[in-house]
Design a protein around this nucleic acid. Sequence first.
RNA 1: GGACAGUUAGCUCAGCUGGGAGAGCAUCUGUUUGACGUACAGAAGGUCAUAGGUUCGAGCCCUAUACUGUCCACCA
Length: 858
Amino acid sequence: MELAKRYDHKLVEEGKYQNWKNKGYFTAGDKSKQKFSVVIPPPNVTGKLHIGHAIDNTIQDITCRYKKAKGFDVLYLPGVDHAGIATQAKVDEELKQKGISRFEIGRDEYLKEAFKWKERYSHIIHDQWAKMGLMLDYTRERFTMDEGFNKAVYYVFKTLYDEGLIYQGERIVNYDVKMKTALSNIEVIHKNIDGKFYYFKYRFLDNKDEYLTVATTRPETMFGDTCVVVNPNDERYQKFIGKKVINPANGEAIPLIGDEYVDINFGTGVMKCTPAHDPNDFIIGKKYGLDMPIVINTDGTMSKSLKKYGGLDRFECRELLVKDIEKNGDLIKIEDFKHEVGHSERTDTIVEPILSKQWFIKMKPLTEKLLENQKSKSKVNFVPKRFEKTLIRWMENCEDWCISRQLWWGHRIPVYYQKSTGKILVSDHLPDNSGDWYQDEDVFDTWFSSALWPFATLGWPENTEDFERYYPIDTMVTGYDIIFFWVSRMYFQGLKFTNKAPFKDVVIHGLVRDSKGRKMSKSSGNGIDPLDVIEKYGIDSLRYFLATTASPGFDFRYQEEKVIEASNYLNKIWNSARFILMNIPSDFKVSEINTKKINILDKYILTKLEENIKVITKAMDKYDYGLASSTLYNFVYNDFCSFYLEMSKVSLQNKEEETLNVLLYCLKAILMMIYPFSPFISEEIYLNLPEHKESIMLESYPEYNKKYRFNNLEVVTMLSQIIEKVRNYKSINKISPSASLELAIKTTLDINSIMDYLKRFTFSNEISLISEDQENSTTYSLTNGTLFIKDNINKDELLKSLNEQKEKLLNEVKRSENLLNNKNFLEKAKKEKIELEKQKYIDYKNQLNDILEKISKI
RNA sequence: GGACAGUUAGCUCAGCUGGGAGAGCAUCUGUUUGACGUACAGAAGGUCAUAGGUUCGAGCCCUAUACUGUCCACCA
């Protein structure tokens, strides 16, 4: 069969994925083999996959395909995440477009809408997985809200609750006022923004002409102030402690309290205290038993009790209030002020700290277990290592996890309250139909369920066959942006509930940025749609680009030129295959390479190949796909295509049949090594080989084979050196590349075996083996001899070139001399290094003498 | 405020345990070589951020400094 002249990605990709899937190659379960398991980090059903998913999935799929080819029973488990707040935001938005609010249609109807959304985007995601060629085992696909998962979530909640690790508490939590839900601390993004610092007069109740100056960034919270605080050591104010001051926002008299929390040097040294809307103020409020009036609602509007301000948006209220205070003469000044303000990770609105009752997980016992495990032999191995530190630091300092969300889309909290008694019951169903019980309205944080992903997907808490066999996960691949959200939580929940770390290796990759290094985002419109790239260059090129450009843990830039480079490379492999297949007779029978029949170049390429297999395999095992692919790239371009393939033309002409076997052997090995990166083109070429299995997916990875390593190949190195020198000589001297020059070689090696190749690739008909140096020639030193090119250029140019060589050699000799005259070097350096240097010195010296002699003769 | 990275050719990045600086793209020159012009052959291009130190020897190890980036953090 003959391949087309060009690699056409669309033709190559056509139908292959369906075929693999239909044949069941993606289905795990061969118990005769050792298992290897990977779970896909479940994408949110919020929308289409982006380039960030592509990098994640590419690394996973490469790992899986590599391991499968290495003989493992590989499970790559797919699934999607309901993504509570993110999805609900999208569904809300969609309903809003239709003019519907979720409160109008009610919870049940709303959930139906949300499930429809989920179905729609699951399909899109499936199509994208197929486009990317992921070897996902669809027979085991899961969803974070499927029946089994719901059971797992319930089990986890009940267990933690019964053990006292889950509690309900009244705290200041951050509210996303757009979604009207509480958030966990890590869902709050701190951004440095321009704000204002407002200075107000707080007049004394007993002497209204005197006042304290209080500075605040948030005047609207003043309605909730229940005291003013100064540091008792502050000499300016200590005498006032115990007096009452008037809150300029509402005219109420509040006490002045002394507490060392206040920083004397910050602001005016006087702090207003709003216990219900600030975590620090809350602590002070608790300490002094103050009232904690809530003045801002969960939707960001002001409380109704605030008369004219009631119902206003918090920022409108701020403006109006400041104006009113100014009218009263209590505004001193307004300063510009840069400060950190929390924003919701999902909706980007400024979060509002509000006192409320929420469910929390007590973190300490869980994190302690994790930290302990990370010190033991069963520790999780992070790639790169530094992310282990990131995790540990966070685990050492994290606060209790707020897991309740005031949303509808998610796992509803399995807690029932009895109206008549106020009793609380954890249950997965309504205790009775008396109407006396009602369920908690809230749902869990979406990460509460995702944390169970590595084991709940395998059937846990049932002790299923899959759980027994595939848990723990061998390799977890994810971006550093969700180490806290996801990796840490899977880890401590895994330890808690399965007594094992849920994964062995965690491979962390960076984010894909645009060509200028900016983060990709919808608002700046610089996002790259992987489907566009696939359409233009093919998935094989995109995968190759992603895998080779992404250095573990580091962000990298999307550059179209690099994708083109990948595409050119694949075309190179395609054409090398084309060349080989063109030369194979139709009746050719593939056989094992007969090492007795092969020529020296065959030996050379086999030796090189084996060296490369060794290096590449080692890199693949370490997830160093950058090194693995660049090593293969160099082998393919330099050793295989530019050198061996060209040389093989001579042996093929000479009808050396064994070369065909060598070519095929190399080609197959190359295909297998590029296959995990770019499976479609590899399959296409593979199926065109004279002998092959049903699919490349059933083929094994090349093993390092000592049988194909040969010695005494110096003459091949000499061959390539001579070709290079001659080409260089012609280029510099502006001689046609195909000009025939007179060459003479002085060497102790037997050059008969390379004579044909020399003639063909130097275009020289006269090549002689000599024992004495040749006059009137340009001299090139080779590793094992000397090359003389008979000069037919003018003397000036010759002299120039000789002088250039002289300069170079002088430098080398000087460098070598210095080193060898250095006593310390001779005493302390390794012996081999010294020997090597001595040899070099002699070589350079000889060459230099040759050149000097020639110059003198001219 | 704390922590962690990065700084190497015009651009994007490699450089394993310290032994003569690499790739791709871009640039320049040449090529109707029968796999590939998405190619081939060649050239040019770097005081490896700065300053010290350790070492016979430093892009690599140590200490400072500068700049860039990321994460964490309740300073009103």
